[in-house]
Design a protein around this nucleic acid. Structure first.
Lengths: 106, 106
DNA sequence: ATATGATATCATGAAAATATGAATTGATAA
DNA sequence: TTATCAATTCATATTTTCATGATATCATAT
């Protein structure tokens, strides 16, 4: 594909892509995703790791599910969430590299 | 850096990183950024390419400047904007690859 | 059948983002 | 110095997002 057709296909998909990015674009959801970058976590794990109230966590996870960024499996009463999206993994890598490395600017 | 320290440094920078992502997370701004991926553009160019009203364009560009995603140079009365952020370029590449290629899902 | 633990949903209010049209600035050409 | 073009800023209304607390669901252990 050449550059121009990339733009057009992006235009056609702008809503979807923006929805995907909005899924990531919250400080609290970024913290959740950082955890999930390391492996699957129960909702309780995530609440402890981030300090978010239970209801808030549940709503953030719902948003991430809506955008197909995370999935979960059930084990007894506990739900284990995991990062289940290639694009999201790749964006997280870009973010780590650009904002979190020792030599990152800012 | 190992994975765990990545998470902590992300936590410390979550607000900044979320702000950066919010800069990208709008269908209209994605269209703007698609144009700028191809090279610099005047505000008028961008208005024609996207069909956005002039005031709206200006506000979107202001937001992109706020997050240090774009810069501009002046030539006579005309301002030429350009994509001036490594992380943003890398994210755009991830988005093209995952959402706009012929073999992309969805 | 009931109590408990894990999680989701609902209802509400506050804060932030977006679009729109009018007014303004700033640079240049006449 | 006035008119004009390019772009920004302002004011406002609408929509979206986010946090919070209360309630509900759902699976399991007693």
């Amino acid at each position: 594909m050449d550059a121009a057709s990339g733009i057009e296909s992006m235009a056609a998909k702008a809503d979807r892509v923006a929805g995907f990015l909005k899924g990531l674009a919250s400080p609290h959801r970024l913290l959740i995703l950082c955890e999930l970058t390391q492996g699957e976590r129960s909702v309780t794990d995530l609440i402890e790791a981030t300090g978010l109230p239970q209801s808030s966590m549940s709503q953030h996870l719902a948003k991430l599910k809506e955008e197909d960024i995370v999935s979960f499996r059930r084990e007894h009463r506990t739900l284990y969430y995991f990062l289940d999206n290639k694009a999201a993994r790749e964006v997280m890598t870009v973010l780590f590299d650009n904002f979190c490395r020792d030599d990152a600017p800012g």
